[in-house]
């Protein structure tokens, strides 16, 4: 891991001087339960994508393709909202 910057090198007051930096912050490590999707049962209703509070459901061409485990905190909302119950939460 790169050496963190010292107090003379960083913006003052805790300012973050650019946008979109949350992407660089790995919140996946907070997870206790991991969502696993059974693609064979998925109907691509995308309710999980709508409800995910962290944009961690990956959707491509209108199809649910899995999870961004770098950022998914394992809240389980996707599993709870899934109408066909194709998402299960597994302990890490």
């Amino acid at each position: 891991m790169a050496k963190k910057k010292g107090w003379k090198e960083i913006p003052i007051g805790g300012l973050i001087d650019k946008g979109g930096t949350a992407k660089e912050y790995n919140t996946g490590s907070w997870r206790t339960f991991k969502p696993i999707v059974d693609q064979s049962k998925c109907i691509n209703c995308l309710q999980c994508w709508i409800y995910c509070p962290d944009s961690s459901v990956i959707v491509k061409d209108g199809k649910m393709e899995g999870f961004d485990y770098e950022h998914c905190k394992g809240c389980g909302i996707c599993a709870s909202i899934c109408p066909v119950k194709c998402i299960k939460m597994e302990r890490e």
């Binding site: 010292g6 107090w7 003052i12 007051g13 805790g14 300012l15 973050i16």
Partner: peptide, 19 residues
Amino acid sequence: PVTYGPIDLQDFYFEHKRQ
């Protein structure tokens, strides 16, 4: 775009206080 007042934990809070 910038962010004012983000959470600042063990890794940088001390540096900001030093400033």
